[in-house]
Amino acid sequence: MKVTLRVWRQKDGNSQGKFEEYAAEGLNPNMSFLEMLDVVNEDLIEKGEEPIAFAYDCREGICGTCSCMINGKPHGPENGATTCQTYMRSFKDGDVIVVEPFRAKAFPVQKDLVTDRAAFDSIMQAGGYITSRAGSCQDANAIPISKEIADLAMDAAACIGCGACVAACKNSSAMLFVSAKAGQLNLLPQGQPEKDSRVVNMVSAMDEAGFGNCTNQYECSAACPKLISEEFISKMNRDYLSASVKGLFSAKAL
């Protein structure tokens, strides 16, 4: 099969970018989208043109590195799939495919289709953890956790940090990511001591990073390759409200 690509090319973060058109020919429907880009790049190298930079690593849908906006949807047409797990059989022969980087103020483009998602790390550094010193932990079975809670925490933990939620949100909001990370830990008994400070600190780091606000449209959840539910956003809102109200009345140690 054969398709036409309209790809965003941008030399680096300081340059202006523009769309370039490339013909991708001799494709196999069982190729992944990234393998198709590999083929295009080999052709470009052959022609002496610089290959398209795109983010990739594991190519099995778990590392969260790949991040293309394909025909206006993060990761392409399939639901619950990353770019690397999108296959050419999802397109028709002769299609024109528009490929852009994930765009947001908090995710500056570094080159072509590669965006900097370090803002997610800064949110995690602000509170996305349970403080637990190696060697100081009690037995793993000391606190039973109901299967329902463990499963729900796992649903949140499935987040691969790819940023599709931000890319899909018309406001570039990171609420789904942050709520998945905070939600996982806030659900678990181990996460309770830091529950309030965690949600408050992560949300303020999120705000500082320049993400937009949630308008409850849930494009994030629809674009999420792991289909993480917007319910976690609701939970984060609840946790945030409760932390703020508690903050008003809590006793302070001297």
């Binding site: 769309f19 906006m69 025909n71 206006g72 949807k73 528009v98 765009r103 103020k105 320049g210």
Partner: peptide, 11 residues
């Protein structure tokens, strides 16, 4: 402001 540059054809 959170998305200074928009997409060409977001769906």
């Amino acid at each position: 402001a959170a998305r200074p540059q928009g997409y060409q054809n977001q769906i």
